[in-house]
């Protein structure tokens, strides 16, 4: 199958994922007990994405090094400033400096 058709399939499937629950839930009451669960989705998914991109390297644990220290610094900056701009800026500069020094 051509790449273009695969792109169309992936695009259609991805769009259905995006609108799936939004459209199923439209016009219905969402019980309060589910709302507490829905609020746990961002912390759980985003934390999984941090873990997989930081702690794993080709399926095994990334050895301790500049990335780990820069990630710790970035977490502190994110908690203190709540600013994505500061977190990204300090994080990138940290990883450059740490890599040069390591």
């Amino acid at each position: 199958m051509s790449f273009g058709l695969q792109v169309l399939l992936l695009g259609a499937g991805t769009y259905l994922f995006r609108i799936s629950v939004v459209e199923l839930a439209a016009g219905r009451d969402i019980p309060a007990r589910y709302e507490a669960m829905l609020q746990l989705i961002p912390p759980a998914v985003l934390s999984a994405l941090v873990a997989s991109s930081l702690a794993l390297e080709n399926g095994s644990i990334r050895p301790f090094g500049p990335w780990w220290v820069a990630a710790a610094i970035s977490t502190v900056v994110a908690a203190k400033t709540r600013s994505a701009a500061w977190t990204l800026a300090v994080g990138m500069v940290s990883v450059w400096i740490l890599t040069a020094l390591w």
Binding site: P42, L46, L49, S53, A71, S74, T75, A78, S83, L88
Partner: peptide, 23 residues
Amino acid sequence: FMIPLMFTALVVPALRNRPAILA
């Protein structure tokens, strides 16, 4: 490194109570 960094910037503001931190 931007990948874990970006998700860190997004996840930290979402950690606002004990269930979220545990999750």
